[in-house]
Amino acid sequence: MGRLKNKLFAKILTRLPALGTALFDKKGNAIEGLSLETIPWTPVTKPLSESTIALVTTAGIHLKSQTPFDMHDSMGDPTFRELPLDTPPGELTITHDYYDHADADKDINVVYPVDRMRELVEAGEIGSLVPVNFGFMGHIDGHYVKRLIEQTGPEVADRLKAMGADAVLLTPG
């Protein structure tokens, strides 16, 4: 029943973005427990055509063969899933009750633009893509915010650096 309620609310929010603005944008800080004093900054040192780009999405994307994100914990799921670049079409799926992903189910590029990025590589506009991208589930709350910031987020960042990523395109759900 809880999942059905979340899905219905997500559908309403998707169709009525003004409602989301009214509900969430009045707060001083939209993410409870998050207080960041600094903004991470890495200067760009090479042209895009020579850069290796990674994709990280919080849209709840994972492979059908992987464990889905936990939809029964109201605090969310701070874990991540590996999304290999060579994943066959149709092997990706979405588990995320907190936004309406009916359109993303039709075309994953709406939230995870992997095909568009491949086209930009072929066109020579960007240098290359990392061999493995990463998927998170964006509904993170309570004590999981700390775990995301201190554990799973840095772990993904380290792995992206090890793969030679120069920049990361983050996409929400």
């Binding site: 997500a10 929010l13 998707t14 169709r15 973005p17 989301g20 849209a59 936004y99 309406d100 992903h101 009916a102 359109d103 993303a104 039709k106 075309d107 590029n109 709406v110 939230v111 633009p113 568009r116 996409t171 929400p172 759900g173």
Partner: peptide
Amino acid sequence: WPMGHPLGEPGNV
């Protein structure tokens, strides 16, 4: 844009 559509509409390359 509506949630769930950071890149836009499905199929709109």
